[in-house]
Design a protein around this nucleic acid. Sequence first.
DNA 1: TCATCGATGTCGCGC
DNA 2: GCGCGACGTCGATGA
Lengths: 231, 231
Amino acid sequence: MRLVVARCSARYTGRLTAHLPLATRLLVVKADGSVLLHSDGGSYKPLNWMSPPCATAVRAPDAEAVERGVTEVWTVQHQKSDDRLEIELHEVAHDSAHDLGVDPGLIKDGVEAHLQELLAAQIELLGAGHTLVRREYMTAIGPVDILARDGAGGTVAVEIKRRGDIDGVEQLTRYLDLLNRDPLLTPVRGVFAAQEIKPQARVLATDRGIGCLVLDYDAMRGVDDVDSRLF
Amino acid sequence: MRLVVARCSARYTGRLTAHLPLATRLLVVKADGSVLLHSDGGSYKPLNWMSPPCATAVRAPDAEAVERGVTEVWTVQHQKSDDRLEIELHEVAHDSAHDLGVDPGLIKDGVEAHLQELLAAQIELLGAGHTLVRREYMTAIGPVDILARDGAGGTVAVEIKRRGDIDGVEQLTRYLDLLNRDPLLTPVRGVFAAQEIKPQARVLATDRGIGCLVLDYDAMRGVDDVDSRLF
DNA sequence: TCATCGATGTCGCGC
DNA sequence: GCGCGACGTCGATGA
């Protein structure tokens, strides 16, 4: 990994065309050839970048560029597309290289898949007498997270989100429309389950006769641990 | 901006829980307090990060941590949420600080707005006899990209996307529902126009009687250039 | 390889 | 500040 702090300007052409006026920035060149151009603020997203696979060609500036104070020109070309990042370097304040080695990567806990798994295992959270039909029930427009049956034998389609937004309600609505066309399933009831359900989503769901279920991840995981210990 | 290259492990708790095993990484501390933790590969997204506003507290490791080789512990706490990033530093290979100043930011040349502009100028792409009513036709739930009239005098609402996804069809459906309540406009036909239309989106659109139009950006721009030269 | 979908999405605009 | 749509979205997963 090479770290360069320099005054520079940049120009990107590819899926769009954009440019960066002259300013001091951090340039990171990773081992895989990818390049990041960071300012001293904002979020984790660089101002400009090139994803791997790509290659950087360094050349001396032409006379006109020298006149403007350019000391070096980097052309970062993507290997599989015509995306290109051209960087003109002026004064270089820092330049160092480091061997980082391979990274074991991030390990995550508690995503939507886990919520689905937990709810499938604790399907009675939908109400007493509920039984699991299957997870990822496939339809023509995508998989329903959980399909269940209630105590009375009615079908229940469950959409699970970490954060219950209006989009999730729309998604579940589409599934319900489709499922209710199937004479073997109809009537299908909908349940929108999430760790947190936004007020607008709750209003929309309620208006459409869709039930809302707030999932307590920690509690569900706790129960799951207890279950695990039983076997 | 502070740049640190060090062997470190990290733990993030917040919207999810995750951890990074011990490895050598780049830590970037920006002027606004945000922290990025980069490996020497992958994309521009850091392995872990904390967005501003946040503050970092540095403390000495406890005896147990010293035993494990930890030399310093950083606790990066978000100011407005309970998101927290805890980093244990081991050997530090590099540590430097740089004053970058304020960045003027990226200047983009749009593609999205351009598509709308081009289709408005080439409205006959909707079919012979079509005329433009107006772009960005305002409704209570947002602007319809293009409102047009077909050869028979019927109203046509057009939703334009670069990538035609199922969400875009939903959006257009909402507009059509609303527009069709207006007795002066109804019946309003829908056209979903995009550079690329996903199969599921096409199925949904067709099912709802919405037409699909694939836009050839380069061809449209070419025509536009020719038009430009004529005037 | 291609398509779909989630994301600690982030970013920017309008209300 | 919130809601909503776009993104050079990226990245994982299943067909």
